[in-house]
């Protein structure tokens, strides 16, 4: 565990909690892509099946349980408790365009052709693109609430910090996982445009709105 890994995990946790609190406090999931949230729930579920097969540490197990629990709580908010506020008309990204290629790729490029390993690989690939429905929704409506941009910032920052973690681990532990690294790079690159807008607008007190 190095500082990049820990701050990455905490940043991920912050993102998830910010989103839950935003929905809870405003009693609304307006501007949130339910489709991205479904994809994140699928990501956590398929990746953390090893909760049933192996124990790594109390930290590892608790974080996995918290991530999964929060993902399903978010889904419950969006599709049940605050369903009336969910803006499905703008959440029109076709997720099958992500699921089919990602599913195919996880069968073709993986570390080991076994069910758990393929599901882990699938989750890594899917996570890298799971935010696209949310970014698509923002580009359609042309704006995002500031609290939603904080959520996106921490969610993007988390994988960027993991990239530094992987550089660290490569130099100091001889560890590298090409699948995670390439997917993590793709994931971080997808946020770059958003990071630019966040720094130049939101951090200067302006609302994130895109030119028409």
């Amino acid at each position: 565990m190095n500082v990049f890994r820990l701050t990455g995990d905490l940043s991920h946790l912050a993102a998830i909690i910010i989103l839950l609190l935003k929905i809870w406090k405003t009693r609304s999931c307006a501007g949130i892509s339910g489709k991205s949230q479904i994809l994140f729930a699928v990501v956590f579920t398929s990746r953390y099946l090893d909760l049933l097969t192996s124990f790594i540490s109390l930290y590892n197990t608790s974080m996995k349980v918290i991530y999964i629990g929060c993902a399903y709580a978010t889904l419950y908010f969006v599709y049940m408790k605050f369903k009336a506020t969910y803006d499905g008309n703008h959440d029109t990204f076709r997720v099958e365009f992500l699921l089919v290629p990602v599913g195919g790729l996880s069968f073709l490029v993986n570390h080991d052709f076994s069910p758990l390993e393929i599901l882990w690989t699938f989750s890594i690939y899917l996570e890298s693109v799971a935010i696209l429905p949310q970014l698509f929704m923002i580009s359609k409506t042309g704006e995002a609430e500031t609290i939603t941009t904080h959520y996106l910032f921490f969610l993007g920052l988390y994988r960027a910090l993991y990239l530094f973690n992987w550089i660290w681990r490569f130099y100091f532990e001889g560890f590298f996982d090409m699948i995670a690294i390439v997917a993590g790079l793709v994931q971080t690159i997808l946020y770059c445009d958003f990071f630019y807008l966040y720094i130049t607008k939101v951090l200067k007190g302006k609302k994130l709105s895109l030119p028409a």
Binding site: R5, D9, H12, D50, S54, I56, S57, N60, M63, K64, Y67, H111, W120, Y162, N165, E173, G174, F175, F176, D177, I179, A180
Partner: peptide
Amino acid sequence: DIQINPKDEL
């Protein structure tokens, strides 16, 4: 030597 892919990350 290089160790690949233990699942200790989240």
